[in-house]
Write a protein that binds this DNA or RNA. Structure first.
Length: 805
DNA sequence: CTAGCCTTGATG
DNA sequence: CATCAAGGCTAG
């Protein structure tokens, strides 16, 4: 080490460490710490060998403060040349939890002061989130996978996962190396982590040392074992490559490597490429790309091409309304072609000169369509104003949803297209068809216009930066209801056995409207005549063997595995009821405890983990209360909680009061929700969906990962629940709103009942700190917290008008 | 005829 | 140079 280490340690007193001193002198212009990132090779910096470093501004550290004013705008990352680090284990020391730091004391010759400071609870949460997943005792299933040497350029290498539960197929990129993966499930990690709220030198030093000495040629995503905050871990039963499981990669060369494993369903939610998983609007088969103006499968592409090129004319032997799907698409080419056209495939895109390659004139429209899709994805859950029962559908369900807008008359191309009129078709051109094919009337544009007029648009344009900001935006007047609309469910219509009224505009019976009709018992909704099968609300097929099988293989089942154990919430209630304090205190204790469970659940979620730390914090601050309420609601529905809990004051506190953080006004409303859900047959799947939807809160949809996750959750859920989803969704929205009300209520105590607030020990409650932080942010909820004169019973809140069916 | 895979070549 | 929608090829 001596020769190689050069200056960075050489001219320092051996016992000098920034972290063993209370005050450290730092150069004023250089109040930074260098934190090593994951091992990485090559580069020519000069700090510690073979590592990547992040230059961290001490001012941003929750654990240190400095009087320097220097601010780093962006994280500064760099690498150093590789050297065997194991001999140098002694020079490793620790810093903040979540970072294992090399002792870079040479950088602290300065005149700024660096002091330790006491981190807030949120700081600790942050640090906890930034920790690698808690390492645990290994179930040493040796699994042989094959990997590939790390390609420095591909940061996404570890997002490419492969196959299989325990045995995996191989995928090579670069030269082949046999890698051995040890799958370690997490379980007991909390025991040695429990005490380590503060940075703990020895723990980190030891563990890091162990890592380095034991695993000389091991690279691990997660070898740096941090001490962890005292957030309880749940036992997890994770057997296969899976969210939450930990992997250690051993390989025989020292080039580094990237794990490839099977993508889990949930991971697939955000990671899967664009059209994977999309269904061909003609036959429902897997989409392979844009073909002739539409995202279709390979077979419909070929079919369309052959038909147009060979000027085929088909005749339907039935009534020209045959059902077309993957299994029967060969049966009636006439109806298949008709459906191709109806859905928006363009004959003009078939080249008359048969020239290969290149791009056609639709290129830019494909691009635009992609953008629209992206946007639509981001707005998967579309809020539709429904004040009064509208007589006009808010959106039209049109095949145009699948087609690319075509507004071109551009003939400036050497590619000659078939003129639509040259191929005689048997189709009667209806107004609708004309609209579809019209070069001037873009139906996508139409759709866009409609979307632009709905009030979800601000969600995209004005991303919610602060947690609970969304709460602020929510009108207090609950009489103005918002309903939720899922294009996804519309999409299902395409694969259902629904009949397509040919060439007829089909007014949308959106799920939003179905919400209206199912919850308001309104009969004025414009549900189409009963004879027509709605493409929007497909009938659930009777559960055949196949569907049952599919059910268990669905995303939903996979996602359910990540849910906390049912007993968790019971345990929390039982533990909390013995604590000193009145009802609010009981509720806050329960919330605090459950928050730990929630944090761990979120932290172990792959998608959540992909978010930036700040975004994770924001998301948690926004969604914890809804998740909490969902948890208690679920437990209540299934009779896991007793209706009331006797606390130390002798008072009987209803579960509802606890669930609503002490806000008793809406306990009956909540009880009603519990009953309704129970009657609707609320299952584990529904609970799972609720919990994920709560985590990936709608107000955070401006993060693509969040909106994508929501979409997938909805899709998976819809596969299980079909059209019932809409009914559940409206109740979910009620829960979400209630949870936000509860948070606002709790925060209102701070100003209206300071003694009560103080008795809740806001300095030790993460829940209260979260609420406080959210509320005291500049543009936040504070100003909108209504004056609440009397806690528990009275409020100036506008009463929520909950619909009952 | 079907449908999966392959080749091509303008586009960015 | 990668991308990706065109057309082409061919077993079944």
């Amino acid at each position: 080490m001596e020769g190689e280490q050069k200056q960075f340690l050489s001219d320092l007193p051996k016992d000098f460490s920034p972290f063993s001193e209370t005050n450290i002198k730092v150069k004023e212009e250089d109040p930074f710490l260098f934190y090593p990132l994951k091992d990485n090779s090559s580069a020519d910096a000069d700090l510690s060998p073979g590592c990547s470093y992040e230059l961290l501004n001490l001012k941003l550290s929750p654990f240190f403060e400095t009087n320097s004013e220097v601010i780093v705008e962006k994280p500064f990352l760099f690498d150093t040349p590789k050297v065997n680090l194991s001999e140098d284990a002694n020079s490793i020391t620790d810093a903040d939890p979540g970072y294992a730091s090399f002792d870079l004391t040479s950088f602290f010759h300065g005149n700024s002061e660096v002091k330790k400071r006491t981190p807030s609870l949120l700081d600790l949460l942050r640090a906890y989130l930034s920790l690698p997943l808690p390492k645990s005792e290994v179930k040493e299933e040796n699994i042989f996978l094959e990997g590939f040497p790390r390609d420095n350029s591909s940061d996404n290498g570890d997002l490419e996962f492969l196959n299989a539960e325990t045995e995996s197929q191989c995928c090579y990129k670069g030269k082949k190396e046999k890698l051995s993966f040890i799958n370690s499930t997490r379980d007991e990690a909390s025991s040695d982590a429990s005490s380590a709220i503060k940075p703990n030198l020895s723990t980190i030093t030891n563990s890091t040392t162990d890592t380095l000495t034991e695993d000389k040629n091991v690279e691990s995503e997660a070898t740096s074992e941090g001490p962890g905050v005292d957030l309880q871990l749940q036992p997890a039963s994770i057997q296969s490559p899976h969210i939450g499981s930990r992997w250690r990669i051993h390989w025989s060369n020292t080039d580094g490597g990237v794990l490839r494993r099977q993508m889990t369903d949930v991971e697939r939610m955000v990671l899967r490429p664009n059209h994977e998983g999309e269904q061909c609007p003609v036959c429902g088969d897997r989409v392979s790309g844009y073909h002739y103006g539409l995202l279709t499968c390979e077979s419909c592409k070929g079919f369309f091409k052959r038909t147009v090129q060979n000027k085929k004319q088909y005749q339907c032997s039935a009534d020209a309304n045959c059902h077309v799907d993957r299994t029967c698409r060969k049966r009636c080419p006439s109806c298949r072609f008709q459906k191709c056209l109806t859905m928006g495939m363009k004959m003009e895109a078939v080249r008359a000169d048969r020239m290969r390659g290149g791009r056609n004139k639709f290129g830019s429209f494909y691009k635009r369509d992609r953008a629209h899709r992206l946007q639509r994805n981001a707005m998967r859950v579309t809020v539709i104003p429904s004040s009064g029962v509208t007589s006009q559908p808010q959106t039209f369900y049109t095949p145009a949803d699948h087609q690319v807008s075509s507004s071109t008359t551009d003939q400036n191309t050497h590619i000659h297209y078939y003129d639509q009129t040259k191929v005689k078709t048997e189709f009667i051109k209806t107004e609708y068809d004309a609209h579809l094919q019209s070069p001037t009337l873009s139906s996508s544009t139409n759709q866009q216009t409609l979307l632009n007029t709905t009030n979800e648009d601000h969600l995209i344009r004005f991303p919610t930066t602060y947690p609970l900001a969304e709460v602020k935006q929510e009108p207090f007047d609950y009489s103005e209801h918002h309903f939720v609309h899922h294009p996804l469910l519309e999409y299902q219509g395409y694969t259902s056995t629904a009949n397509y009224a040919p060439m007829m505009p089909i007014p949308t019976v959106t799920t939003a409207q179905s919400v209206v009709t199912s919850t308001s018992s309104s009969t004025t909704g414009r549900v189409s005549e009963p004879t027509r099968t709605s493409p929007v609300l497909p009938l659930c097929p009777a559960p055949t063997e196949k569907t049952v099988d599919h059910f268990y293989n669905s995303n939903m089942a996979e996602m359910c595995k990540t849910l906390p154990d049912d007993s968790q919430i019971i345990r929390i209630f039982n533990a909390a009821k013995g604590m000193k304090g009145e009802a609010h205190s009981f509720a806050v204790t329960v919330a605090d405890e459950n928050l730990k469970v929630i944090v761990d659940w979120a932290k172990n979620n792959q998608l959540f983990g992909k978010l930036q730390l700040d975004d994770q914090m924001n998301l948690l601050q926004t969604s914890w209360s809804t998740i909490h309420l969902v948890d208690i609601t679920n437990a209540m529905i299934h009779g896991n909680l007793s209706p009331t809990y006797k606390i130390t004051t002798g008072e009987d506190v209803s579960v509802g009061a606890v669930a609503l953080l002490g806000y008793r006004l809406y306990v009956n409303t909540w009880n009603d929700i519990v009953n309704r859900l129970r009657n609707m047959g609320f299952t584990k799947f529904d609970y799972c969906a609720f919990r994920f939807l709560a985590l990936f809160d709608q107000s955070m949809d401006h993060f693509q990962a969040v909106s994508a996750a929501r979409s997938r959750v909805l899709q998976a859920w819809a596969e299980v629940r079909c059209s019932f989803v809409s009914g559940f969704m409206s109740i979910f929205e009620e829960i979400r709103r209630l949870s936000h009300d509860a948070v606002r209520y709790l925060w209102s105590l701070q100003s209206n009942f300071p003694e009560l607030w103080a008795s809740l020990r806001p300095d030790t409650s993460l829940v209260l700190e979260m609420i406080k932080t959210s509320a005291t942010r500049p543009t936040d909820v504070t100003s909108t917290v209504p004056h609440i004169s009397v806690p528990l019973q009275q409020t100036t809140y506008a009463p929520v008008v909950y619909m009952t069916s």
